[in-house]
Design a protein around this nucleic acid. Sequence first.
DNA 1: GCTTTTTCTGACGCTTGGTCAAGAATCCTG
DNA 2: CAGGATTCTTGACCAAGCGTCAGAAAAAGC
Lengths: 236, 236
Amino acid sequence: MIQLTPKQEEIKLREQRILDVARSVLIQHGYHGLSMERIAAKVEYSKGTIYNHFANKEEIIVALAIETVGRRLEMFKQAAQFRGASRFRMLAIGQAAEKFVRDYADFFTLEQILQLPSVRQKISQQRQHEINSIEVRCMDIVAGIVRDAVAAEDLVLGPDVTPEKLVFGIWSLTSGGFAIAARSGTLPHLGLDNPFELVHHHTAALMDGFGWAPKSSEYDSNKLNQKIHCEVLSNE
Amino acid sequence: MIQLTPKQEEIKLREQRILDVARSVLIQHGYHGLSMERIAAKVEYSKGTIYNHFANKEEIIVALAIETVGRRLEMFKQAAQFRGASRFRMLAIGQAAEKFVRDYADFFTLEQILQLPSVRQKISQQRQHEINSIEVRCMDIVAGIVRDAVAAEDLVLGPDVTPEKLVFGIWSLTSGGFAIAARSGTLPHLGLDNPFELVHHHTAALMDGFGWAPKSSEYDSNKLNQKIHCEVLSNE
DNA sequence: GCTTTTTCTGACGCTTGGTCAAGAATCCTG
DNA sequence: CAGGATTCTTGACCAAGCGTCAGAAAAAGC
């Protein structure tokens, strides 16, 4: 297993090429435009060969999704390293989440498709598990910051409020907001021209509601965001 | 147009039957299980006849979605009539939203499918517009409550915070939370066994964060929810 | 160089979305 | 109510796409 024959090397490279092609087709032509025939034509191999790599279309989609959420995990890890008060570290996570949805606009498409039960039940346990585990690790990073906040007494959780429950709220607000922003064309029409800023604003209000120090009135979020970008989000 | 021939009457009835059958197939067999052939077989008409009613599969799906969000609009209208402080009326909307996702579990499936760009671009302007308008009217009801809250001085909005912006936050949190709850099987695993209650809790925190009186510590939400159910959510 | 193993191919079967010409039912009018 | 005009219904048909697999081609082993 350690030594790969040239052939095996080639196969491994091809797998990545298939994914790259699939992603570009998905972005350009959407879910219905993504056909095995089309992928095969673009990578210049026959359909059968593609099926040697991925048992079906859904496996390709989930493989793409794994790549994408993996990238998010990396971004979250980096954001969590921001040095500062617990609340500011959470802000850094928020910034990372925003950068993520900006950089990987196809993420929502992928997620939507994967949520369809008919799609979900066709993918292998193994990949199912893999994507789940990445998701959980993302969650864990965020929950860790909440735990740190409690430890540092920046935040006092009520009885039977666990860090995970708090994360659920922040996560819901953020992902819900981004999802609405990503799909709805009617937002500007309602005077909601900058959904990202709105999500930040609401996250701040939510944290204020939980009494997470320091309150939003006590720091300059614009400056802080700039600092976050410089220190943990710019790709060196 | 006023007088329908017996034949026209029959056709109209059939249209509803097609939708009913389609909905049941969708619930039982998911998106991929929903085929025109299957619908045709179940309503005992030929495929061609189904195509006389709906130009394609997507039109059936959007018609189902219109029925469903129409039902939500009704529930919101009713909830908004709750008599009480502005914040309690907003709570009533929250209760309605919860009842809605409980009663129409297929809603998320429908919404997911409709959000796929490849699906969206196949449906008629007219139906696109129709579903959009219902969505906006829902929004309006909620924004109306916020405006009432401002008028009653229960709530003071910061500079350049419009009622719509506030609604965006509440909507994001609620829809995001419900969406996560609807699809993720890993929630109980993390100790998050009652996502609906969690969403309430977080909505309350968000309102607290905006200083919407009365604060969550000043009323008994359980009692209030019961009252809401009796007065505006039980079906007469 | 020859055999064995692995990999690649594209024709094939099958399902499904969508069309349409021809036949059936319904409506309309004298 | 007859019979022509209109509208509706049907199912064969086409195209497209998923997934398979026997045989061809290439690589590996000896």
